[in-house]
Design a protein around this nucleic acid. Structure first.
Lengths: 251, 251
DNA sequence: TACAATTTGTCCGTATGTATC
DNA sequence: TGATACATACGGACAAATTGT
């Protein structure tokens, strides 16, 4: 006799796609929901290995294919990682800011193609967060972060690298603020701007001015001059704004 | 003869999980990558219907089960939606801020369980964004938004609803700012705080004071008093901080 | 180097459920 | 009511990957 653990599994309000009433929730969703709630509730510890797909299917009363579809969903949400081989299987993944940033970047990229999210919104968010990030980085004075910021400011700008050096500097400042939420929101924003500015015409003079600004800001941060760092970053972003408007072919 | 479109598909740097070199990327990942790049490149328009699973499998040279696993991945990323029935199938989904907010909420909830993300970080982000949101809401004076904010401020606080009314007000102000990025970052933050504060002891007097603050802020926004709205919100958050510290049993 | 063991990856065939016409 | 065209689900088989002996 196969025990069907899903038969009367109660509704779990957390993190689920909302299902219209009356609509039948497919089995792979129910399996994914159940495993997810076990993971977030801590019943399955980080790094712990799940039973193999065959056993999972048996215990849920579903086929292996159904289990696999559920695992694909959980893997996309960075809740499990599955490996092949003898010591393979599905393992509970530890939360990782980098993957959240990647996902948010993709989502913002999609939203930026709609009227929901304009370039002004991206610029406004930068102007709100980045000066504060510069100030916090200067206040903290974390040696590693300061080193990273200084190094990023030193990189010679190259028109061919798609503003990579430029954005790396800003990402370094955000990381230096010591609040992961700053990077979390703005790094994807930078990525969206970068993808939009690819191959935008930019003169050598403009590039050099930006480079100078960066070194100026980095120097303030390195000397722990919080207020000056904040103001320099604000000025930098304000000066950059018209360039964005000119360079962007959308919005 | 089956055409294998995947054989020499070039690496697409966008949005993929990084694969260790030498590691073989499973077919369902390659199929998902290919479909994803077609979608984000615009080769498949929003709302457009994909071929059915059998045909997709044929065109990619893989089986239907593999196609289904790929579709589950894309569905988790809100890139496609699949429906059953005669006119069912998989459709390219339009980007939707609400689902991004849901996902980010889940991810932040997981991160908040690690030392990566502390309560101070959440509070700092609120203190950075929300006063500005209040100012922008007052500046814009969008009638619908003002109505929503005023209505949210009127709701009588109820100790049993888990601070729901409180957070609804803040969410309304964020939405009123007119920049989706504000809601995008802070609404998940509010959700994390709410889940942590569930059943935290709170006195009727504190509840009333919070309620008063909200009405005060809402009045400023309704009258278009931008600077006062910003300052009132800042004050409200600062006053709230010690309560959070007291109520939170973690961090 | 070869081989065995374990687990995921992939495939096929078939049957069922669901929504529309 | 039935026909149609989808997704959903099952079970079994074999291939491929990885590690240990």
């Amino acid at each position: 006799v196969v025990t069907d653990e899903l038969a009367d599994f109660p509704a779990d309000p957390v993190d689920r796609e909302p299902a219209r009433p009356g609509r039948v929730r497919p089995a792979y969703h129910r399996v994914a929901d159940e495993l997810r709630s076990r993971i977030v509730a801590g019943a399955l510890a980080c790094g712990e290995r799940l039973p193999n797909e065959t056993d999972l299917g048996r215990s849920f009363g579903v086929s292996r294919s159904t289990v696999r579809e559920a695992l694909r969903v959980l893997a996309s949400q960075h809740l499990v990682t599955t490996l092949r081989g003898v010591h393979g299987g599905s393992f509970v993944t530890e939360p990782d800011p980098a993957s959240v940033i990647r996902d948010l970047g993709g989502a913002l990229g999609a939203l930026a193609l709609t009227p929901t999210l304009g370039v002004e919104d991206l610029a406004e968010a930068r102007l709100l967060v980045e000066p504060t990030a510069a100030r916090r980085a200067a206040e903290r004075g974390d040696p590693g972060a300061v080193r990273a910021i200084t190094a990023a400011a030193k990189v010679e700008p190259n028109p061919d690298d798609g503003h990579r050096a430029h954005l790396d500097f800003h990402a370094a400042v955000l990381a230096g603020a010591g609040n992961i939420l700053f990077s979390l929101l703005i790094t994807p924003v930078l990525e969206v701007l970068r993808s939009r500015m690819a191959r935008a015409p930019i003169t050598r003079a403009e590039l050099n001015e930006v480079h100078g600004c960066h070194q100026h800001i980095a120097a303030h941060i390195a000397r722990g001059e919080a207020v000056q760092a904040e103001e320099a970053m604000r000025l930098h972003l304000v000066e950059l704004a018209p360039f964005y408007r000119r360079a962007l072919w959308i919005g």
